[in-house]
Simulated assay, not measured.
Amino acid sequence: MDHIAGKWTILVIDALRAGGTMRYTDLSRRIGGVSQKMPTQTLRTLESDGFLTRTQHPTIPPRVEYTLTPLGHSLAEPVTALREWTETHINEIEAARRSVE
């Protein structure tokens, strides 16, 4: 559950759903504002959990691509809905946080 609900998981799954097969740099660019460590860690976890496949092509320099698996696609719809809900209600969430501070 921790892997599925993580901020970076939601961003990676949503980016791959929208962009299809992507290289690491394209994926990082699409997510934006992240260090190299977080997407790398997230991609490894998602691969080990069966949500995406990592394909390394034997070229120089090596070309690596990421694609959602059928399991990843089944997760993409609820993840996208969660992201959209958050974007819709972000002002309310921030207002609630300010009222508690």
Rank of each mutant, 00 (worst) to 15 (best):
L71V: 05
P39R: 01
R54M: 08
T40I: 10
A76G: 03
A15P: 03
L75Y: 04
L52M: 01
G19D: 08
G33N: 14
A76I: 06
I31C: 01
G19V: 10
A95N: 11
A81E: 14
S28I: 02
V79I: 07
R98N: 06
W8E: 09
Y66V: 00
P58M: 04
D26P: 10
I60L: 13
A18P: 00
R54A: 06
M1Y: 10
G20Q: 07
R98W: 12
A15G: 01
D2Q: 01
I93Q: 04
V100K: 12
P58Y: 01
I90H: 10
E77D: 06
P78I: 03
I31V: 08
N91M: 12
A76P: 01
T45A: 11
H57Q: 12
V100T: 13
V100D: 03
A96H: 15
L27I: 01
K37L: 14
G33D: 09
A95R: 15
S99G: 12
E65V: 06
L68V: 05
A15S: 12
S28F: 03
E94R: 11
T21A: 14
T86D: 12
W8Q: 09
D14V: 08
K7S: 13
T40E: 11
L27V: 00
E65D: 10
T25S: 12
G20D: 09
I93S: 02
I13E: 01
E94N: 13
T67H: 11
V34P: 05
D2T: 08
K7D: 06
V64S: 04
M38D: 08
A15M: 04
E94A: 10
G50W: 07
M22P: 13
E87G: 10
E87R: 09
